[in-house]
Design a protein around this nucleic acid. Structure first.
Lengths: 335, 335
DNA sequence: AGCGGCTGTCGAAGCGCTTCGACAGTGGAA
DNA sequence: TTCCACTGTCGAAGCGCTTCGACAGCCGCT
């Protein structure tokens, strides 16, 4: 292994000088600098990460805590991971992969051994048991998701309330006056999954604001259930001409159910989905996307900011973006 | 930060003694051992990873080099990653995430700074430009995939030849005598993607061995092309009663194409796919699976073995496993 | 009683890096 | 000319751990 001493000897300077060339923490004459740089290149020198970590108490590594449970949408996860890694690299950081199944235990171990300088934790739930730990750890962390209390944390999330509202506004602007909401399976609302509830809330509030009649129902993820839910929505509100769907798994059955009930998309019923963009693209649905890249990038930027001692807001909400596609159209006024 | 000196003081012993308790490299009296263990627990001590790495020149971290280009099947990738991480943890190793887009450059950096003890490189192609680098690096590596020359390497892969053969055998055992092969898009065969060619080769050889007439054709991944390819196969070999498909993207169109041409699955044409299990499960296809977990686990075990100085075979091929589902049936002898 | 070989523990050196204080050398102000 | 303030470089200490050689105490042997 080539050490800093080798480089120093080769360049005819002291090790400390090489270090200063590398870190730029003291001024070095141009001649010396180029000489040292040349030696570094020639010898193929790379500073020993462990030694550097020991001396600076900075590892230049962040932990990425990934949920690997079934049910996460993998394309979105991957886009997120890619963005996070890319952003980390732009700040000369590496990424240590920690799977959520290692639990709080794993976090403690990684944090305790000073392997990483900070944590990026995905898929945080309303009352996540890792939150108290993260709060008291020496290393800063950024959470994707939104636990009940964000005080003392740094959280990034899509603004699901705004997303729900955005759907309503889009449909209202198109002239729709009766809108239905097809939500996640009811169990999702039972356990504390904040984003589902917040979307609903945003949807409901926006509808009220715009003077629009709304009806909401959960949906399970098989065809029969979706059909039942959709039928029930139509029965409750026969004048319904638009539907907001916040349920990836049910998405595939919605158009079919509507067709089975004699409604065509978008002419009889306009559909807006809140879902990953690929799905929407594939089914040609107007949708509010889950901005995975943006989330990953932002989260990592915030983490880096905290590592550099900058204060950060406890909660950053990304504004929803709606992409118009074939599943929405202005309300048809029948003769 | 709690250091080994703190623990030593608390337990009334020398730092080296604590170290020996931790590593077990010298015998320690039971009394001392429990005393030290207790102090460790009480103080919440974790050895500093960097310091340890510096002293032992072992980081206890392996790099996982992931392809994040489009086209990789993410569920399979994730299963693989999970298995690799889990296996690593069982050997007290952590996993550093390196994305393939960082290229050889990235490998060199990570290797040079002694951040990791070894590399697990996924998705290696026949003439991968990282292979020469990996060969000459100080750290050992295990490759998933199979470059042209495996000498001096450690590679793990599914035995694609055997997979092709396994399909033929299954169909032959069911009485089929005329079998078609629907391959990857032709560009895949043009660039050097070993596994596609090897599957073909295994398929062809097995057919010859069993005295079976075989015809093969590539397929693009849209409905029209698949239809054209299937029609062409049937025209070339009108007596064809079985089809092996090695093309995930085309898979969705195969049954439809056959139906459009007046053939029903499995009665008129039996279909065997070589694809990830979820896909096969979802479409109810008899298939040879891509054993992602097994691959990840094996690869990591081999890497650990190499890290411990054990020699490993340059090539480990996993035997294919065929799962029977609704798309194959014995050949129907028509009246 | 004396000796050799164990066992269990200690102290110190060293892993490769950063960083602090020291200090020559230089140029400009007094 | 003297003095001061820089600028650029060096040497040494120290980060927290492992590991090697040393060695005290003990047992069992002659």
């Amino acid at each position: 292994m080539v050490t800093i001493a080798d480089v120093a000897r080769h360049a005819g300077v002291a090790p400390s000088t090489v270090s200063y060339v590398l870190t730029g923490k003291r001024s070095i004459s141009p001649q010396t600098r180029t000489k040292v740089r040349e030696s570094i290149r020639l010898l193929g020198y790379h500073p020993h990460a462990g030694a550097r970590a020991l001396a600076t108490s900075r590892a230049n590594v962040v932990a990425l805590v990934l949920p690997l449970r079934p049910g996460v949408h993998l394309p979105v996860l991957m886009r997120f991971v890619t963005a996070a890694v890319t952003t980390a690299r732009r700040h000369d950081m590496d990424v240590l992969l920690v799977t959520a199944d290692q639990g709080a235990q794993g976090l403690r171990r990684v944090a305790g051994s000073a392997q990483v300088d900070g944590f990026l934790v995905m898929d945080v739930e309303l009352d996540d048991d890792r939150v108290p730990l993260l709060r008291q750890m020496a290393q800063p962390s950024v959470l994707i998701g939104r636990p009940a209390a964000v005080k003392g944390l740094t959280c990034v999330d899509l603004d699901f309330e705004a997303a729900g509202a955005r759907c309503v506004d889009h449909l209202a602007d198109l002239g729709h006056r009766y809108i239905g909401f097809l939500g996640a399976p009811s169990v999702v609302y039972q356990r504390n999954t904040g984003y589902a509830q917040r979307t609903m809330a945003g949807f409901g509030a926006a509808a009220m604001r715009r003077g629009i009649a709304s009806t909401a129902l959960p949906a399970e993820d098989d065809y029969e259930s979706v059909l039942v839910s959709v039928r029930s929505l139509l029965r409750t509100q026969p004048a319904m001409t638009a539907l907001v769907v916040h349920n990836e798994a049910a998405l595939g059955w919605v158009a079919g159910s509507l067709r089975a009930l004699g409604r065509r998309v978008p002419d009889d019923v306009a559909v807006v989905a809140i879902c990953p963009d690929e799905l929407a693209e594939q089914m040609q649905l107007t949708s509010v996307q889950l901005p995975a890249e943006e989330l990953g990038r932002q989260a990592m930027e915030l983490l880096v900011a905290r590592l550099n001692g900058h204060p950060t807001a406890p909660l950053t909400l990304l504004p929803p973006k709606l992409s118009g596609r074939a599943s929405t159209a202005p309300r048809l006024r029948r003769a």
